[in-house]
Amino acid sequence: MRIGFVGTGVISTAVVTALMSSSNSPTQIVVSPRNASRANDLAQRFTAVTVGRDNQDVVDRSDVICLGVRPQDAQAALAALRFRSTQTVISFISTFSMEDIATLVQPCATVFRVVPLPPVARRLGPIAVFPAGGVVEEVFGDLGNLVAVADEQELQTLWSATSMMASYFRLQESAASWLVSQQVAPERARMFVASMFHALADTGLRELDTDFAQLAIDHATPGGLNEQLMRELETAGCFDTVQDGLALILRRMRGEAGFDDTLDQRL
């Protein structure tokens, strides 16, 4: 199988890295030259990877084309390309629907939407796919926890939740910075916080039959430190703000809001 990547950003780079360590590595990968440093690095690391002359060269040399361009660049980038009816297109573009993509890649009739995250480079994390089956499972089945969704609406909702990645690290930064302000050495603060969050995430995966609300209770000894901080965060509306923020992101996914919309405007 020959796989091409139009767009060589963080996600495309992570997927290429994962593919080259999987049990079903493609015979050839062609990457876009748009991000020259990332493209050349991939070609140097993996003998199966070559850098295309341009995006059309990537398309011409591939059976499966993964679209990893930014949403704001997608219309112009894809409209300039010529696809074949026998090709398969897999889109990583968050705000472009199946219909949007299908229109831009005609006459190609086989289109999937996939949501890989940066940890896919280490073959970790969920990979939401729609529709399920076929080439998409062949390509991504060995790269993480494949989540086959029921419909495009469910895919958009799950995709919205990925907007929490930066906030996840921002929360860790807040805890680590506070530790440093209390005279804990920076390297120890970072290791302690990262290791704690890693262990808690592992608990969530190991106890899939226990919902998160119950896990919160299980980790909040009555009258203890965790119960106190959780109470204060709840009182301040922190958890409600997370859900309101996710609702805003979902509205953006549906084309009902933009980057400049805020929760303050909604309220």
Rank of each mutant, 00 (worst) to 15 (best):
R251Y: 09
L208A: 14
L200H: 01
A236W: 01
T221M: 12
L208P: 03
E232F: 14
E173C: 10
F259W: 07
Q214V: 02
A176G: 03
G255N: 08
S195W: 07
R231A: 11
A185Y: 00
F169I: 13
T210H: 15
I217S: 14
Q183F: 01
S181Q: 01
C238S: 09
D202K: 05
A175N: 01
A161C: 11
Q214K: 14
R251L: 11
M196C: 14
Y168R: 10
T262Q: 04
L229N: 02
G258M: 02
T262S: 09
T262P: 15
L215G: 11
Q214R: 15
L250S: 10
A166I: 04
T262R: 04
Q243P: 00
E227W: 03
V180L: 01
T210Q: 15
D244T: 11
M165F: 12
R170T: 07
L250I: 04
M164Y: 06
F259Y: 06
L208Q: 13
G223I: 10
L246P: 12
R190L: 05
V180I: 06
L246D: 12
T162P: 09
G223R: 03
F169C: 02
I249F: 06
F212D: 14
L246M: 10
I217E: 15
A216H: 13
C238P: 04
F169W: 11
A213D: 14
W178C: 02
R252M: 06
N226I: 02
F239P: 03
T162H: 09
L233Y: 06
Q183Y: 00
A247V: 03
L250A: 05
L229T: 04
S163R: 09
R188K: 14
Q172D: 08
F212S: 13
A216D: 11
S177V: 01
E256K: 07
G258W: 10
F197I: 10
S174I: 03
W178N: 01
F259E: 09
Q182S: 00
Y168P: 11
E187V: 02
T241I: 05
Q243H: 13
F259A: 06
M165P: 12
Q228Y: 05
E227Y: 04
M165D: 08
A185D: 04
W178F: 08
V180M: 00
A201H: 07
A257N: 10
Q172K: 04
Q182E: 00
S177K: 02
H219I: 00
Y168L: 11
T241C: 05
A189K: 01
C238N: 05
S177H: 09
F192R: 00
D261A: 07
W178Q: 02
F197L: 15
A166K: 04
L229M: 04
L248I: 00
A194F: 06
H198W: 06
C238H: 07
G237H: 04
I249H: 09
R252H: 03
F212H: 07
G223P: 02
F197E: 13
G255R: 02
N226L: 01
D261C: 11
E256G: 09
A185C: 04
A216S: 12
V242A: 08
R251F: 06
F212Y: 14
A216E: 13
D202H: 12
H198Y: 08
Q228A: 15
F192C: 01
E232I: 07
N226W: 01
L205G: 08
G258H: 06
L205Q: 09
R206N: 10
G204S: 13
I217D: 15
A213Y: 07
F192S: 02
L200Q: 05
V193E: 05
F239H: 09
V180R: 00
I249V: 14
A185V: 01
G237D: 06
